[in-house]
Amino acid sequence: MKILTCPVNGPRPVSEFAYGGEVRPMPDGATCTDREWADYVFNRSGVPGVKIEWWYHIASGTWFYAERDTVADRVIRTWLPA
């Protein structure tokens, strides 16, 4: 079973976590164009690589960051948002 390290609760089985997708900067909805907003809402960087992602520890309600290699499925580090 795959183990993910929650920054609060330590190493836990991956089944206790929910995946929240890649961390992406949100454009300012008041000033950006419809096209920029659609790009933010729908488009993803689907190419493989090392990405910073949102993860959620369901049992404790903790949202945190994980840096993960999406080819090797290796988590490099996890930390709480500042």
């Binding site: 790009d39 729908f42 488009n43 993803r44 960087s45 689907g46 190419v47 493989p48």
Partner: peptide
Amino acid sequence: FTPRVTDMVGLRTPIYI
């Protein structure tokens, strides 16, 4: 492998793997 190919032509898509 679609995102790798669309990346070659600089196209952004909603596809995730």
